[in-house]
Amino acid sequence: MKKLRLYYEEYNKGPFALLWKHFTQQHFAFFGFITLLLLLLLALLTPFLTPHDPYLQNSQLLLVPPSWQNSGLVSYPLGTDDLGRDLMSRLMLGTSYTFGLAILAVLGSLIVGVILGALSGMSKGVKSSVFNHLLDLALTIPSLLLAIVIVAVLGPGLLNTIWAIMLALLPQFVHGVRNAIQQQLKQDYVTAYRLDGASQRQLLLFVIFPNIWEQLVLMFTMALSTAVLDVAALGFLSIGAQSPTAEWGSMIADSLDSIYLAPWTVALPGLMIFITVLAVNLVGDGIRVAMKKRREN
C-alpha cells in the first residue's frame, strides 16, 4: 500500500542516520551491538589481556572451581580445567578462534558471494540459469556433510573446516546478492541512470551497491551466527579445531569427561557461544526492524 510521504522538517536525515536512529531505539539490539563490539575487541587484543598462559598446565591446580565458590581462587576467576589450565584465559583466547575465525570465514564468503552474485545478477538467460542451478546443488548439501567431505580430503584441522564453512555459506550470499541486485534493476532511478548512458559497471558500483549495502550487512549477521555455531559444532565433534586448541566447541568436548566433577568447564564455553550468537542475532533482528521502520515512515 502506498503511503503519502510528508516532510515536515527543513532538514531531513540521510538514510543511514535514519537507520541508526531506528536501530538505537531498540535497546536489546543496541545492547547486542555493544556486546559484539566488546567481543571483537577481545578477539583482537586477547594475547595482551589473558591473565595466564591459556596452554600452561598446572598440576597443582586441577579443576579449581570458579572464584565465587568457597574453594575457588581469586587469581583464577573462572576456575581451571582438568589439566590445570586457566579457564578464563582459554575462554578469552577462544573468542579469537571461534568468533574471529567465523568473522573471517563470513567475510571471505561474502566477498566471493558479492562478486559471483553481481555477475549472475547482471547477466541474463542460460548462463545465469545454469549457474543458479549449480548453486542450488551446493545449497542442498548439508554443511556438516560438506565439512566431513572436505576434512576427508584435506585432513582434520580448524583451517580446513573454515573452507567448508565458507563454501556452505556461499550459495546464500550469491542468491541474496543476486536477488537484491535484480530488485534494484527494476527501480526507476536505475533506468534513469541507464538512459543517461551509464555502463553496466558504473551502474553496479555507483547506483546499485550504495543501495544494497544494508542488505549485505543483514546477510552478514545472519551468516555470522551460522558460522559461529558451525565452527563450535565442528570443534565439538573434533572434526574442526583439535584438542589443545582453546576453541569453545572443542573445549566443551575436552571437558565432557569431567562434567560431573566440574560442570563449569562445560557450562562456561557453551555460555560464551550462546552469548555471541545471541548478540549477533539481536543485531541482525535490530537491523531488519530498523529497515522496516524506515521504509514505513
Binding site: 551466527s225 555455531l229 563450535a232 559444532a233 565439538f236 566447541g249 566443551i252 565432557l256 562434567i259 560431573y260 560442570p263 562445560v266 557450562a267 557453551g270 557461544i273 550462546f274 550468537v277 545471541l278 549477533v280 542475532n281 539481536l282 533482528d285
Partner: peptide, 22 residues
C-alpha cells in the same frame, strides 16, 4: 524463539541431559 535460535545444539543437549538424565 530468539534464545532457541541462538543456542548451540550440542550444549543444549548436554544441559538437558544434565537436568533430566543425570
Amino acid at each position: 524463539a530468539l534464545v532457541g535460535y541462538s543456542i548451540p545444539i550440542f550444549w543444549w543437549a548436554l544441559l538437558l541431559i544434565m537436568v533430566f538424565s543425570l
